[in-house]
Design a protein around this nucleic acid. Structure first.
Lengths: 137, 137
DNA sequence: CATAAATCTATTGCACGCAATTGAATTGCG
DNA sequence: CGCAATTCAATTGCGTGCAATAGATTTATG
């Protein structure tokens, strides 16, 4: 059952990240969103959703919590008021520094060489694309 | 980001299963539980939790919904009244037949050879064990 | 034997994840 | 231009996932 192996691995990752992210006051999905924003600030909700594979039903409350924590600002775009632009605050930038150890700790926990990680990641991306392609017919 | 690839693949699987399981009235986690019970009937909640990596907080309401649907029965074990034994009903057994096409459809959607699937699965199980081992220290 | 410790299920509270709907804003078409 | 179709974010409802806790039962300990 490949499905079950992935299911278990995904949860194992979430559990592994949890103790590392807790001191930062972030959940795992929130951390993914912050990483996306650190990589490119000022993204619209739609853009984040496409990149992370999440819809507005998930992102809206998540972003609201990040705003509540003072990490991001949400603002309607002046040119297209349907869109909401998310910008990282000073506090959000500081969190980036404080979270620098997280990636390293996870890399160590996986105990994989860089080659192994790369191969596995590519296989999974490939698989994901095939599954999504099949679903759309 | 390996974490992100797994995160995406897990959701892609869930989405791929969804249209197949909907006609059966099952969610993906419910399907996993039913598969575990079809493989071995009469399991206790604890046993299911260990095998699927879920705790009682997740399983209790899930099993209650399966009972509501008439697929399983929950009964306190006579020998140890702390435990609850889950048994598949006649209706639950009939569902097994009706779901026989699901696995095949997913296998096809992945578009992987048996060797690829096996290799990927083993890599993920290995990774999961390392992550869990690291967490327990 | 009585009591403390451990085990097991259920409940509560919070945070996703997604379908479906709503409401506002923009685009396209006649 | 004017109205319909589209796009986008937010909301609602349901089903996980998990920590923390509670309650009941069994086991271990003195």
């Amino acid at each position: 059952m490949l499905c079950f192996a992935i299911y278990g691995a995904a949860h194992a990752f979430t559990r592994a990240y949890k103790p590392l992210l807790e001191p930062l006051g972030l959940t795992y999905p929130q951390y993914l969103v912050m990483m996306a924003l650190w990589a490119e600030d000022g993204q619209k909700v739609k853009m984040l959703g496409d990149r992370l594979g999440l819809d507005s039903g998930t992102l809206s409350p998540l972003l609201k919590r990040l705003e509540q924590s003072g990490l991001v600002k949400r603002k309607r775009d002046a040119e297209d008021e349907r869109q909401v632009k998310i910008t990282v605050t000073q506090q959000g930038l500081e969190l980036k520094e404080r979270s620098s150890g997280v990636m390293a700790a996870i890399g160590k926990a996986t105990g994989c060489s860089l080659d192994e990680v790369t191969a596995l990641r590519e296989a999974l991306v490939e698989l994901t694309e095939r599954l999504e392609g099949a679903g759309e017919k």
